[in-house]
Amino acid sequence: MSVLEIKNLHVNVETEQGTREILRGVDLVINEGEIHAIMGPNGSGKSTLAYTIAGHPKYQVVEGEILLDGENVLEMSVDERARAGVFLAMQYPVEIPGVTVTNFLRTAKTAIDGEAPAIRGWIKDVRESMSNLKMDSAFAERNVNEGFSGGEKKRNEILQLELLKPKFAVLDETDSGLDVDALKIVSEGVNRAHANTGLGVLLITHYTRILRYIKPDFVHVFVAGRIAEQGGAELADRLEEEGYDRYQVAESAAEAVPAE
């Protein structure tokens, strides 16, 4: 059984104002097949956690570990992490001019599997996944994310999730900017991948809305770079009613205490 472990993770970023400490000791264990929701206010470090797991060079790990089935993820390059089975669905997927979705998907699939997929089965899989996500077949010949609407970009991320079949997926605010129809379609895609492949999911979100469609096993509340509270799905219901205010009050009280 696969497991993704995050231990005492501290992460800094360099800004024009100097070094900023974003993550301040995150501990998290995600087993195969589990769905963990990470919820928190803006600026709490949720996206930093997502990008650090994927290996974005902007984020410097100063302390702690990320292990995938015991292997040290932090020593892997971005592409090695993906090939090891970690997937990041991005909040703002970039455009790749001149590279078609078809070409991109095939190149990625070949890289992940170490060999080119058998043509016939692959074309059928792509078609089926696109149709499940209500993506027009003309999408395949468009350049990656070029001129895509917000909803189309997110569907394209989930299309990749379904086709690349990772062990663990980090979904970085996949729900943001989606209308309710698109939200349902995208959520169904995640649930399909979860059911079909035993995917472990780290669902990062600001709102509880997506949790109506994707049922989390665990909910973690992220405040100021660490997990402030965790529980089951019922914690999300409580957040829906109360918001994040009580955490921020506690946090600002803590901030007021001199660090040294």
Binding site: R81, E95, G98, V99, Q160
Partner: peptide, 22 residues
């Protein structure tokens, strides 16, 4: 762009090729 392609398992040299060819 490089990060996006590499996050899908594509090696750096191939990712660069894709972007430039594109």
């Amino acid at each position: 762009q490089l990060f996006y392609l590499m996050a899908r398992g594509i090696r750096e040299d191939e990712a660069r090729r894709l972007v430039v060819r594109g």
